[in-house]
Nucleic acid binder design. Sequence first.
DNA 1: TGCCAGGCTTCAC
DNA 2: GTGAAGCATGGC
Length: 279
Amino acid sequence: MIEIKEKNFNIAQIAESGQIFRFVETNAGEWLLHAGDRKLIIYTDETSVPGAAGADCQKRTSVRFDCTQAEFDGFWRHYFDLDTDYEKYIKAVPESDKFLSNAVRCADGIRILNQDPWEMLISFIISQRKSIPAIRTSIEKLCEKFGRESAFPSPKELAGASLDELLECSLGYRAPYIYEAARKVAAGEYDIYAWADLDDDELRAQLLSIRGVGIKVANCIMLFGYHRIASFPVDVWIQRIMDTYYDGEFDTARYEGYAGVMQQYMFAYARLQKSLAFA
DNA sequence: TGCCAGGCTTCAC
DNA sequence: GTGAAGCATGGC
C-alpha cells in the first residue's frame, strides 16, 4: 500500500471530471480504477460529493494506492500527473474572473491524467451526443465483450468485432466510426502512438482525418490521451458557460499553454452546479 | 413521455 | 465557406 498526501489531488473530483469513464466508488472511500489493462484500488478518507460544502484541496488529504512502490513509481505517479505543480495554474486565475475563481475553489483537486491514446480515441468517439452515464455504459459493454478480463480491448481485439457486435454495445450511429477506426489502427494505417511526436497542430490534423472525430473530440483526445494541455475542447457545457459568463468567447490566450486545465475546472464546476441544483 | 446528452457527417446554398 | 438537417439510444 502506497500512501501519499498531495495538494491539489482529489480522487472524487478526478473520477467525476469527465476525462475518465472507468473510475467508480465501489464502497465509501474505496475506488476502482481501470486504465487500459491495469486495475487499481484506491482508498480515500473523504467520500464527499466533489466540490460539495466547498471542498478544500489545499489541505493534503491521505490517498492510499493498493499497489507496490515499483508500480506506483513506474506507472501511477505519471498517470496521475503527480510531478506537476497545479498551484501555478490555479494562481494564474484572477479574482476578477468570478466564474473561474469559483470553479477552481470547487475543483482544485483535478489533474489531467496521462491516459492511453487508443482508449481516449475510442472513448471520445463514443462520447458524442451521449451523457456521461451513457458513455460509461457503452464502454463497459465494449470491455466485457471484447477485452480480456474486462480490460479495455486492444486495437486488434476491437478490430475483430463485427458491426452487429458493436451495435450491441449501444453505440448507435457511432458503431461504423468505431468499426473503421479499430481496423485502421490495428492495420497501422493510423499510427496513433507515433503521432505523439507531432506538434499540436499536426496531431490535431491527424486526429481529424479519422471518420467520427471532429474538432471537439480531437481536442479531448489531445488533452486526455496525449496530454496536450493547451488543447481547449468546447462542448455544449463550455459553450453555455462562454455564452453566459464570457460574452461568447473565453480568452484562452491568458492561459497560453495550459488552457485545457482551466477547461476542466470550468466543466467540472458547471456540472456540479447543475447536479446540486437538482439535488 | 419527452427531452437532452463532453458532436459529426452530409448536403444545400 | 457557412448553416441546417439527420442521426441511435440511454438516462433522467
